[in-house]
Design a protein around this nucleic acid. Structure first.
Lengths: 174, 174
DNA sequence: CTTGTATTGGAACGATCATTCCAATACAAG
DNA sequence: CTTGTATTGGAATGATCGTTCCAATACAAG
C-alpha cells in the first residue's frame, strides 16, 4: 500500500474512499489491464484479417518486450494472478476466465480461417487446438520468470508455431 | 510457521536449531520433493523402455491425482515456486532448473528412441521438442489452479500428445 | 470572499508473522 | 540415580501490512 501511495501520488485516504479495500482495487486493475495491456498486443490477432503470422508476431512481440525489460521482469499480470490464485476464489477466477476465453476465441477465429483453406480439421479439433494454444501461451509467460535466455523462449514459440501449422496443414510463418 | 509446528509436531525451537530459517527449510523441501513426489511419478518416463505411451500415462496420472484431491488443490510445489519466483533469486532458481532439466532429459530420451525408428528429426529438433514439452507440462500444472473441469486438461494432454506424435512421425498413444 | 467538498499527510490500531529466548521437561549414556 | 544433551511449549520481540481516523489543506461553485 505504501508502494501504491508513492507510485501513484494518491494518498491512502483517497484510495480507501474510492475502493473498499485492496481486493476491490486489485479487481479494478485486472479489468483495466485488459484495455491498457492486452488489447494493444492481442488486438491484431482478433482482427478480421489475422493469420498464423499475426499470432507469431504477437508471441515474438511479447518476447522482445520481456527482453527489453531485462532485469526487472514484472511479468504478465494475468499469469501472475493465475499462479497465486486461491482455487476457492470464484470472483478473481472470473477475471482470469474472461482473459483465457478472449485468447482462445482469438486463436480459434484465426485457426478457423486457416483451416477452411485446407479443410483438414473439424470444428471440435479447431476449438481444442485453440484451447491448447491458450494454455501454451500462459505456460510460456509463467516460465519467463525463470528463463533468462530469450532464445529458449524463441525456440518454444517456433516449435509451437510449427506444431500448430502442421496440424492445420498450413504453411508455418517464419 | 505455526502450521509447520502443528502439522509436523516439532517445536519452533527444534525447527530453528536444524534450519537457519524459513528459506533454508524451504530449499530442503524443494530437494526432498524430487525424491518423494517427482521420482515416483516421473521415474517411468526416465526408464530405458519408456515410450510415448509412458509420457501419456505420466500426464494422465497427474490429472487423475488432481481430480481425486478435488477441492483442496495444493498443486505442484515446483510449479507453485516457479510462479512466485523472484527472478533475482539465483539459489532458488537452481532448484527449479534442476527440475526442468530433469523433465527435458527424460522427454528427450524418449523422443530420441521414437525418432530413430522413423528418422524424421534432427538431434536439435528432438531437443527443441523436449524443451517444448517441458514448458507445456509446467503450463498445464499452472493452469490447473483455474481449471475445475478435468476434461479440459485431458483435451490439452491429448492435443499435446497428438502434436508430438505427428512431429515425430510416430503413432499417437490413446 | 465564503461555503462545501475532496484530498492530503501521517499518526494510530490491530493483525499476522519470522525469529529469538528460556525455563521446564524428557531422555539417553555412563 | 546422575549427568549431559535435546526437545518442548510458549512468552516476547520486532517487523510488515491493511485499514481507519482525523486535523490541516487545497480547491471548486456560488
Amino acid at each position: 500500500m505504501d508502494d501504491l501511495v508513492r507510485e501513484t501520488g494518491v494518498s491512502r485516504g483517497s484510495i480507501y474512499s474510492d475502493f473498499k479495500g485492496k481486493r476491490e482495487l486489485f479487481h479494478a486493475c485486472l479489468a483495466r489491464y485488459q484495455d491498457v495491456a492486452v488489447t494493444p498486443r492481442f488486438g491484431p490477432v482478433e482482427a478480421e484479417d489475422a493469420r498464423l503470422s499475426t499470432i507469431k508476431q504477437f508471441l515474438d512481440d511479447g518476447i522482445s518486450s520481456q527482453e527489453s525489460l531485462d532485469g526487472a521482469m514484472p511479468g504478465c499480470l494475468v499469469v501472475n494472478t493465475l499462479a497465486q490464485l486461491d482455487p476457492a476464489d470464484k470472483e478473481t477466477k472470473q477475471y482470469l476466465e474472461f482473459h483465457t476465453n478472449r485468447l482462445t476465441n482469438g486463436f480459434r477465429a484465426v485457426f478457423e480461417r486457416e483451416s477452411t483453406a485446407t479443410g483438414a480439421l473439424s470444428d471440435q479439433d479447431v476449438t481444442a487446438l485453440a484451447e491448447f494454444t491458450t494454455m501454451s501461451v500462459l505456460g510460456l509467460w509463467s516460465n519467463a520468470r525463470k528463463i533468462t535466455d530469450a532464445n529458449e523462449m524463441r525456440r518454444y514459440v517456433n516449435m509451437l508455431m510449427s506444431l500448430i501449422s502442421a496440424k492445420l496443414g498450413a504453411e508455418c510463418p517464419s
